Structures are given as structure tokens and as C-alpha cells.
Amino acid sequence: MTKRFQLVGIGNAMVDVLSHCDDAFLADNGVEKGIMQLIDQNRGVELYDRIGPATEMSGGSAANTIAGFAHLGGAAAYVGKVKDDQLGRIFAHDLRAQGVTYEVPLADKDHAHETGRCIVLVTPDGERSMNTYLGVTEHLSPADIDEAMMADAEWIFLEGYRFDGPGSHEAFAKAIKAAKGAGGKVALTLSDPFCIDRHHAAFARMLREDVDLLFANRAEIEAMYDTDFDSALQKAAVDVECVVCTESAHGAHILAGGARIHCPAVPTKVVDATGAGDLFAGAFLWGLVEGHDLETCGTMANIAGSEVISHLGARVEADLKAKFRAYGLEVRAG
């Protein structure tokens, strides 16, 4: 029986506030370069007042993945919480405009927290330093998980950042049970080395018991398995059926069925690295549900990642299918 959704993502619903700065600005304002730091509302206001001109656009790691998947024509839904405020309405509109089903009720206007936002400081080398105020998205609860939606998905995609929410582990468990009970599969992205450090035991248990497809970058998988890169990849391949790990300019590594595949990176001038891994995952999952082999999925993913780092922001601005065809990959038009 055909399911309604090919992919349902669960993550932190955020609006990105993107601004260019230099390394001195990071140092002067106590921002650690190249990672995601959780901040409170007051720190968010303070940083916002200090940055230069900024661009606001819908973001959130899993939401970016889902938007990229939908851009390619995939049937997708997203679960993440925003408030009934200006940024929340922008987030919901942008996602639905991509063709994504988004049905999570908005938090009331009188909620103590605002819609989450991530102040992304982009340095001249394209590296992004993320300062995240989770806001209401931190309070996504098991009650927000629609079991019927999860059961009606071929894949669910879980965002590692969501492990920081107080009800997140229970919400994930509810989603996994509903999806797996109906024959669905589970993909997880590790998201961030510091997130792994905060929730290592929970990640390890989920990898052993629930995850069919793991996305990570080199720093994340080394943090997860506390060893060198190649050993970490091999350990992950014992836990998970398919491991997909990016290594920046060195491309991507795919381990499945005892084999290891390397997909070279697509050379690109880096303008803003925000969302590279998110769009990589979206394109890989789209290729997978469309029946492409793993090497083709990895190539598509690298092309998608290269597109998003070529401009400011974490959403696709070009026709990815046209880019796939330009690389000699066979995909249907439309």
C-alpha cells in the first residue's frame, strides 16, 4: 500500500537570522567559531543588537532537509513547534510554500517564549557560527506527535538537535514506535558534536535499537564513537544498516552491506556553509525513495550541498534536478 508521505521530519522549527562578520567580532562577543551554541532570550537580543545588516529566513536543520526533499518533488511533512507570532507565521508559510504538509498547532500568542531563532554569523571563509535561542520549539512534546502521520510515512527523519528539548526523547520514541510499527524506517542526523556530548547515552541507544540510516559529518561521528575517523565509521556500520558521513571538501563516505563507497565533493566557492548537511540529507533521502543506488544518492547529495553553500541561506535557490542531469544523472523532469 502506498503511503501518504515518503518522508516526515521532526526537528527544531527555527527562523535563521544571517549576518556577515569577521573573526574579531566573534572573539569580541564570546562566540565560538563553527559550532552551535544554545543561548537564552536575553543573549539573543544582545547579539541581535550588535550584528550588522541581517537576512531573516526560515531555517531549522530538519526543516531545511524536508524543504530540499520537497523541492525535488518528494511527498513530505514536518513536525516542529512555532508560536503564533510574526516569525512563527513566516516559518509556517515558507514551509507550506515548498509543498510541505505542516499541521502542528501554533503555540498561543501569550506563551512565555517566542518562536525560536538562530543568529548565524558567517565569516569570510564561509564558516557559520550558530547562536540558537530555541524558544517554543524546545517545548515540542509527545502530544505534538501524530501517530497516524508517522505510520503513514516511508521514512521519518530525526534531528539530533532536538535531543535538547525536555520532552524530546519521549516524542522521538512515540514517533519511532508508530513508524516502525507500520513498516517505516528511521533516519537520524547527529547534528553537532556538543549535542552528542550532552546526550551520548541516548544517541547510542537509538543507534543500536532504532536507526536504519545515519547522517553525520567527520567531527560528529568521531565524537559519537570517541575514536579516529575510519574506526568510527566501522563502529557506526555495526550499529546502523547504512552510514552516510560527509567530510567537507573530501566528499562523502557511505557504508552499507559490508561495502564502503566514496563520493567526491563538488568543487564550489563557499559563500555560506549554513544548511550544507541539511540539503545533503534531503537529496540523499530523495534519491533513496526514488530507487537510485547509494553512489548516485551520494552524488546527488553532494550536488545539493554544493548548491546551498554557494549563496547565503539554507534553502535551495536553483533547480536541483537540472543540476543532477547536468552531471549525467538520470532523473525525471519536473
Rank of each mutant, 00 (worst) to 15 (best):
F5P: 04
Q6R: 03
L7A: 06
L7Q: 04
V8N: 01
G9Q: 00
I10Y: 05
V15W: 10
V17K: 12
H20T: 04
C21G: 00
N29H: 15
G34W: 09
M36G: 11
L38I: 09
Q41D: 14
N42E: 15
N42M: 07
L47E: 11
Y48W: 09
D49P: 06
T55I: 13
E56Q: 15
G59T: 10
G59W: 10
A62V: 01
N64K: 03
A77E: 11
Y78T: 06
Y78Q: 07
G80E: 07
G80N: 07
D84A: 15
Q86N: 09
G88M: 08
D94L: 11
L95G: 08
A97E: 15
T101Q: 13
A107F: 13
D110Q: 14
G116I: 05
I119L: 15
L121C: 03
L121H: 02
V122T: 02
P124C: 05
G126F: 02
L134T: 07
A143I: 00
E147I: 01
A148F: 04
A153N: 02
A153K: 02
I156C: 05
R162C: 01
G165P: 13
E170M: 03
A173T: 11
I176D: 01
A182I: 04
L188M: 07
L188P: 01
D192W: 05
A201P: 06
A202Y: 05
A204L: 07
L207K: 04
R208Y: 02
E209I: 00
L214H: 07
E220A: 12
D226T: 13
T227Y: 08
A232P: 13
L233W: 05
K235R: 15
K235T: 06
A236Q: 05
A237L: 06
A249D: 13
H250E: 14
A252L: 05
I254H: 13
I254L: 12
A256K: 14
G258W: 08
A259Q: 15
A259S: 14
R260Y: 01
A265F: 03
D272Q: 08
D278P: 03
A281Q: 01
G282A: 06
F284L: 08
L285F: 06
G287M: 02
E290K: 10
G291N: 00
H292D: 00
H292S: 00
D293W: 00
E295P: 01
T296C: 06
T296F: 04
C297N: 10
C297S: 09
T299Y: 02
M300D: 06
A301I: 09
S310G: 14
G313D: 06
V316Q: 15
A318D: 15
K321Q: 09
F324L: 08
F324R: 12
A326P: 03
E330F: 00
